[in-house]
Write a protein that binds this DNA or RNA. Structure first.
Lengths: 189, 189
DNA sequence: GTCTATAATTCGATAGAC
DNA sequence: GTCTATCGAATTATAGAC
């Protein structure tokens, strides 16, 4: 059933986060599902395929999200705010999958890995363009766009550390804290 | 010789970064050193011991660094700048080891893992105290100290992505970019 | 869908000769 | 320090009975 399928996904993602993709064995997974190793292959064709689907699924969601923002034609500063909201939204809805994006792509097989990295590079270019446009229009201050891109994305990448411990109802507050940090830093206003 | 020992360390760290700790096999390592698997154990007692020494070595360096800064008695805003300089310095000197800190601690054996996480927690508390003091004294603006701590550390954690591609002579420029981002964000000054 | 049994491979590490 | 040879354990995945 879809019930059991969802439990499987939840357990598998949890174990990967705890032990890393290679650290999670099919025996671990079977034990956490209280079933036998062979049954796992009722849910997925292979361990690799599971990782592949999770990673590319999230990659697609991030691309769709930023594409909508760019298409909106809003001012750059508003687009950056919308980007932060996108991160918070996806991290609340898919906390474990977002956490996976940082590292586990290393364990994709070679051809998938390069495809994934290519998608990530294209995504970062979209962010960089967003920031560059904001600088050119004088909506945010001048700085190295490449460094700025990485600093913003890095600050967002570790969001999931808070999501699990904080209740979702604090989402708006969290969103505001991050936005003000990215926009005005630690300095007094 | 110490030469060969250093080559070993460099190769091992590179492979771990590329494939993850569990992804790097002793056979990979032997191939990259152009020697046999058995020879590796002239340099290290075990694969685990190597990871242990690298991770706790870096942990100690970060603790020593922040302890010196706190002991200096400088104003909080200056301490934060010194903290950023510490990160840039250590990341330039030990780029691969710093990169290791983010994830590979998951592959320490249980007792070492909890010890490592404890050290990391204590480190983060030192940073949080530094930021809280700055807020109390009115040197930086009020915000959730826990969130601020993670945002600052996250922005710094991914430094190594630039260090490898940028020449070291740009270190000062990089330091300045990061400092201004953490202190004043993307906003116009 | 669930199990037992096992195939086929790969892993870290060691013994022992040189 | 270097090699050959190999051990014992663990890995993903499958075959086939129920």
């Amino acid at each position: 059933m879809t019930d059991r399928h969802q439990l499987f996904e939840e357990k598998a993602l949890g174990l990967i986060l705890e032990k890393g993709f290679r650290g999670m064995t099919m025996r671990d997974l079977a034990a956490s599902m209280d079933c036998d190793v062979a049954n796992i292959y009722n849910y997925i064709p292979s361990k690799q395929a599971f990782l592949h689907d999770q990673l590319f699924g999230m990659s697609t969601r991030f691309h769709q999200g930023i594409d909508e923002i760019v298409k909106s034609g809003l001012p750059s500063s508003e687009q950056i705010k919308a980007l932060i909201q996108l991160y918070v939204r996806l991290t609340v809805e898919f906390p474990k999958q977002v956490a996976l994006l940082s590292n586990e792509w290393r364990h994709l097989e070679a051809s998938d890995r390069s495809m994934f990295l290519d998608e990530r590079m294209r995504y970062e270019k979209k962010v960089k363009t967003m920031l560059s446009t904001g600088m050119r229009k004088g909506e945010i201050r001048q700085m190295n766009a490449q460094v700025a891109t990485h600093l913003v994305l890095s600050a967002l990448r570790w969001l999931f550390m808070h999501i699990d411990s904080n209740p979702v109802k604090n989402r708006i507050r969290l969103e505001r804290e991050i936005m003000s940090f990215v926009l005005t830093g630690l300095a007094l206003t």
